[in-house]
Simulated assay, not measured.
Amino acid sequence: MNEKYNAYVRSVADYFIEEMKKGTALWQQDWDNAANVVPVSAVTDAPYRGTNALLLMAVRMSQGYGDNRWLTFRQVQELGGKVKKGEHGTKCIFWKHLVEKDEKDEDKTVERLIPCPFVVFNSEQCDNLNLKKFETPVHEWTPLEAAERILDKSGAKIEEIKQNQSYYVPALDKIVLPLRTQFKDAEGFYATALHELGHWTGHSSRLNRPILNKFGTPDYAREELRAEISSMMVCGGLGIKHKAQNSAAYVNNWIDVLKKDPKELFRACADAEKIKDYLFGIDKSLGLTAAPPVKKDKSPDNKEAKAALQTAALQTYKDLPNYQQKYIQSSMLNYLTQPLSNPYQFQKPSQKIRTIDIER
């Protein structure tokens, strides 16, 4: 089983490596129609998750399927349909929990996760299915309203300044974005903001991922891959157009990482799902998914601790571009002279700016 699973992992990683080389991977493309991007079961309406979701999204996009519903061969038969001649299914994996007696202690049990493959077909690969007509889900909120609510209720420190870079600063636990009016449209702003909010979830007080990574290293590429996949999942779930923003350096680093360790794609997708669940759970009134409670980090309460924080942060970011180093340094100095009441708390834009952005 391990050999078959490893071969499957390698085949999926190779697929996405080739897609990235061609510039056609999911996260390398703009989506003009983001509605119903997330694949779901045609029988239960439950969304596919992790690598299964990523793979089915990629297959759907490459084949041009308009329906996001998928079925196993047995489900096709149970719904009175049949798979069209010449069509091929897509192999996915689910994990089965197996409880066994501990060989060393008969009074104890051990749990194992067994990878189990299964094959699914898109509904458009089938004929005569007894399915209701494919419809776009209707929510009480628009995609942009939902994104704004997530940003607002996250409590994240978000600063918008006139410049051309977007990034998250772990040492300050703060997101820096260009002004909203610098984006071509509102969806571009929210897609970028949600990407950076994905990095924000990695803080030790939230999902606690290793995010203090040097620019250009494999670990930096791994975190960037998680944020990019999660942004794609979040935008797809909300119905926001996806805006590709991958540099050649990121793509090359991702390819190198997956070549050396194909299982990294599966770990990245699992983390991306956690990010998506966390962000969707910030505002439960959206009716998406639950998220763990947000832990509030404590700011340093004395000058010595603050000085140590500044020194550690500048040392961590010494390999970043000069403009980011200067910004972090000035922000640090400003932070150290401010009261401990979130001087960078996100400020809502004026209604005038918001209206102009959305109408563009």
Rank of each mutant, 00 (worst) to 15 (best):
Y15M: 14
F16E: 02
D32M: 14
K22Q: 13
V38N: 10
L54F: 07
Q28Y: 09
A42W: 05
L54D: 09
N68R: 04
K21Q: 14
A53L: 06
Q63M: 15
L71D: 02
A34K: 06
D32L: 14
S62K: 12
R60V: 06
Q29I: 15
T51I: 14
T24G: 05
E18T: 12
K21W: 07
P39F: 15
R69C: 00
W70T: 00
N52Q: 06
D30H: 06
W27P: 00
A58W: 05
E19K: 03
G23N: 13
W31N: 15
V37D: 11
G50I: 06
G23T: 08
M20T: 13
M20Y: 12
S62Q: 10
M57R: 04
R60T: 12
A35C: 09
W70Y: 07
P47D: 09
K21G: 06
M57E: 05
M61W: 02
P47L: 14
V37E: 12
T44E: 12
L26P: 08
N52M: 13
Q28S: 11
E19R: 09
W70N: 01
M61F: 03
K21L: 13
G64I: 04
V38Y: 06
E18F: 07
V37P: 10
G50P: 04
A35Q: 12
S62V: 03
Y15P: 13
Y65Q: 09
T24F: 00
N36P: 06
T51Y: 05
W31M: 11
N36S: 10
I17F: 05
N33F: 12
W70M: 04
E18L: 09
D45W: 06
A42H: 10
L54P: 08
N36Y: 07
Q28G: 02
G66Y: 05
Q29D: 10
N68V: 01
R49C: 06
A42P: 10
M20D: 05
